[in-house]
Write a protein that binds this DNA or RNA. Structure first.
Length: 585
RNA sequence: GCCGAAAUAGCUCAAUUGGUAGAGCAAUUGAUUUGUAAUCAAUAGGUUACGGGUUCAAUUCCUGUUUUCGGCACCA
């Protein structure tokens, strides 16, 4: 998909189109006031104050029609530069423009404006020469959006659109949107019976169906094996903790609004746990540790509960009950770099296995001015942040830095991916933590026999199994690789009455090799059953008829491919087992 | 949580200005015995998300709740 923001020509066009949108809205809603209309990766939007009016989908059509009309009139777009004073005078009845003007650079005394026909807007530009250049655009959606992105402010109306310089590109873009919605994990999750929801269980509390459970189990086994090889020690801990536990960790102060409310039982007050760090801290603290024991890596597939905002809940991607692929690595300060490097390498390794290519490393740093969220120790923060940079540079990873995205206890590396629909999400994370070990009074004995405080790395490679599964569904469009597929092979006897028994024996032989088989002995035509095997995206379909029984061979067809291959049963078995073992994508 | 939209059979969708719901697929049964993307027929399937109101009459209008969807805000 084209990134419009990074394409100079399209960027100018889309920005001009935002002005065209504003002009059309002004025609239809003379009382409308305008905030900003920037270009984004997927087009543009404009934030508008319509007073008590709200946009509906019918209005969107009306506005688009008006835009076409204005564009057809073909007014030139004229730039002019006016003084700040003049700008303030000209827009004196528009509080939004006054806000914009007054926030501009002290040094810049000149402000540029663009006028097209009866409409003038403040703007740095540049713009296309004339509105008649804007032909291939479409308004896509609308919604409320807080002024200046702050939930405390008034909600404005936001209209999104996109503009291209030819019809084909616009149509291709709309086609891509359509295709994206086809691979939405919520759609595929329903079709393939991967998960469901039920009002009686609650919002954001998915139920994993048998097919989903198979996928999840494969993921668990996969990452468990990797972690075990790297010296992780896996544990099980309760899904609740006392409020005091979270007061000790500091999470209570920072996040109690985002936890399920506490419950009193006898003299104890519990919360459903939103994360596992405190439990793992206690496990580390359960005995004395020598510097020789470190790093100690405690891992758990741990179910957590978070009271996510109702509007944020989405399929398996953002839920209120999730299972983290969590681990806490307790290290000496000297080991931070090496251990962090191992985590990043593991992430790279796993992404390679899954063929995940489109992701971004985000180095999430503190906002130095936010002393409320982040504990106040500049030296410690600077050291930690530099350490992470160093490792990423060593490994040759490209990354971008995000100020104010760090956890309250330390900086972190997040891996971001783009789902089929909606904004980017974090998949993997690795977080450096100097704070919790102190709060839990953790220590190890160094080579001088003195007590030292360990450093903790929080890390989750899959993030949560829920979100990772959502992502993999969308990556594969529901056509899972053999090792993950809930049903790996469908066996279709040409004539169930004649070949069914042999097919069933084959099924049993393959099942003994731990393959997941569906035997389709329904009284339907072969083509009907083949079609269903294809539409349900089973990786391989096997056909058993007279020839195959006679030759003890297997004829099979790979999902999405046309031809059939025939191998001896022995060769076929090896062929499939190899693919499963190699986790072939 | 906020702004908007939606909820009809297991699934995907219909139902003209208010007159107690239809189709395709799936399911069940029967016929058919099949060689690579849909064989034919019959049957069954619904308190139209849930509650309240208006009306002689509500899937349809009003209202409350829940859930879902598109964004915004949030995301340890």
């Amino acid at each position: 998909m084209i990134n419009i923001k990074e394409n100079e020509k399209l960027s100018v066009m889309n920005h001009s189109c935002a002005h065209l949108l504003a002009q059309a809205v002004k025609h239809l809603y003379p009382h409308a006031l305008f905030w900003v209309g920037p270009v984004i990766e997927e087009g543009f939007y404009y934030d508008i104050d319509l007073g008590d009016d709200v946009i509906t989908s019918l209005d969107l059509e009306r506005i688009e029609k008006e835009m076409k009309k204005i564009a057809k009139d073909g007014k030139r777009i004229v730039r002019e530069e006016i003084s700040k004073e003049e700008a303030l005078e000209r827009f004196k009845n528009d509080p939004y423009k006054i806000d914009l003007i007054s926030r501009m650079d002290e040094d810049s005394t000149v402000i540029s404006c663009y006028t097209q026909g009866d409409f003038t807007d403040l703007c740095r530009g540049p713009h296309v020469e004339s509105v008649k250049e804007l032909k291939y655009f479409k308004l896509l959606k609308f919604s409320g959006a807080y002024w200046k992105g702050d939930a405390k402010n008034k909600m404005l109306q936001r209209i999104y659109g996109v503009c291209f310089d030819n019809e084909e590109d616009l149509n291709n873009y709309l086609q891509e949107l359509e295709e994206a919605s086809m691979r939405d994990h919520r759609k595929i999750g329903k079709e393939q019976e991967i998960f469901m929801n039920h009002d009686l269980v609650g919002k954001g509390m998915p139920l994993w169906l048998p097919n989903g459970a198979i996928i999840r189990k494969q993921l668990e086994n996969y990452i468990y094996e990797k972690e075990q090889k790297m010296g992780y020690l896996h544990v099980y801990t309760p899904c609740v903790g006392t409020v005091d536990l979270y007061k000790t960790s500091g999470h209570w102060d920072h996040y109690k609004e985002n936890m399920f409310p506490s419950m009193k039982v006898d003299d104890e007050e519990f919360v459903l746990r939103p994360m596992n760090c405190p439990h793992h801290m206690l496990i580390y603290g359960n005995k004395l540790h020598s510097y020789r024991d470190l790093p100690i890596r405690i891992g758990e597939f741990a179910t957590d509960f978070r009271y996510e905002a109702s509007g944020a809940v989405k399929g398996l991607e953002r839920v209120r009950c999730m299972c983290q692929n969590d681990a806490h690595l307790f290290v000496t300060p000297e080991q931070i770099g090496e251990e962090f490097k191992k985590v990043v390498s593991l992430i790279l390794d796993v992404y390679k296995d899954f063929g995940i290519k489109n992701y971004k490393f985000r180095l999430s740093l503190r906002d130095k001015n936010d002393k409320e969220k982040y504990f106040d120790d500049d030296e410690m923060w600077d050291n930690a942040e530099n350490k992470l940079r160093e490792v990423l540079n060593d490994l040759g990873c490209t990354y971008y830095e995000a100020i104010g995205e760090a956890a309250f206890y330390g900086p972190k590396l997040d891996v971001e991916v783009k789902p089929a629909i909606g904004p980017e999400i974090t998949l993997s994370t690795c977080q450096l933590d100097f704070l919790l070990p102190r709060r839990f009074d953790l220590s190890y004995i160094d080579s001088n026999g003195e007590k030292q405080v360990p450093v903790v790395l929080h890390r989750a490679i899959f993030g949560t199994f829920d979100r990772f599964t959502a992502f993999i569904i969308e990556e594969t469009k529901g056509a899972f690789p053999l090792w993950l597929a809930p049903v790996q092979l469908t066996i279709i006897p040409v004539n169930p009455e004649v070949h069914g028994e042999y097919a069933n024996q084959l099924k049993e032989r393959l099942e003994n090799l731990k393959m997941r088989i569906n035997l389709d002995c329904r009284n339907e035509k072969l083509s009907y059953r083949m079609r269903e095997a294809q539409t349900s995206k089973v990786p391989y379909s096997i056909i058993i008829g007279d020839k195959e029984i006679e030759n003890k061979s297997v004829s099979f067809r790979k999902y999405g491919e046309q031809g059939t291959m025939t191998l001896s049963e022995e060769e076929f078995t090896k062929f499939i087992l190899d693919k499963i073992a190699n986790k072939e994508i």
